[in-house]
Design a protein around this nucleic acid. Sequence first.
DNA 1: CCACTCCTGCGT
DNA 2: ACGCAGGAGTGG
Length: 273
Amino acid sequence: MPEGPEVRTVARTIASEIVGKKLGCFWYSNQQLRREINSDALRLLENTEVDKVSCYGKVLFIHSKNEPIVMAQLGMTGQLVVTNTDQPLPLHTHIRWPLFGMRKEIRYIDPRRFGVFDVCDENKRQAILNKLGPDPFIMEKKDHLPLIKNMKRSTRVIKEVLLDQSVIAGVGNIYASEALFLSKIDPIKRACDVSDVEYKKLIAAVIDVLQRAYENCGTTFSNYVDGSGKKGDNLQFLHVFQREGEPCKVCSIKISRIKQGGRSTFYCENCQK
DNA sequence: CCACTCCTGCGT
DNA sequence: ACGCAGGAGTGG
């Protein structure tokens, strides 16, 4: 479900509910997610207070006063929400984590179970972050040139490079298409054939598209919700994603859909060269 | 590099 | 019945 802006929105919205609260008795379903749930390690966090919630790319961390740190990835359909304990349990609820004395709990819901809910220590967290490319939400101007140099080395198609989290963290299938549209780059072009001028526009477009999505609390076209269960408002502002056959908002020709690396890419054949 | 896998649900 | 879906890893 979630790309950088959605994960960042979830992090912000659950933070306001759980920071400073004490975690209660951890519960999990017997089904396993992408990885098995390490309940023994997670239970070490019972009776500890949540310190902060952070995220990098599509990875979300819940920090307690002590280690370990909770590491969550939402996959395609993961939802991390804080709700009243007496609310009916949605199908595919895999984790319930009450907040001490609050009549509220953290819930992890994930129909497809592509997500991860795990723990790590600070060293492991750094190792995870080191494998990821720069996050456009955090990136500074001085990071642009090394990023462009890195992208340029690849002979892969530019769309697929944008999805590679080790190159740039937080861009997913929606915002890859959107950023390429805004910077007028043909998604079929190999990354090594994209010019410096195009790259500058592309990086600016990526930052722009992600920032705008975050300001609109993310894109909901299916089941994405923020930490309070609220849908995102960004769908109406998308230019190409899931608009196959509809008119381009710039030139009015029909938006195309192609497959790249098994994923759909939406683009305008006229505007993007 | 590619194809394939993990899984459920929805629309055609 | 089939193809599609905000992700990411594996193995050839």
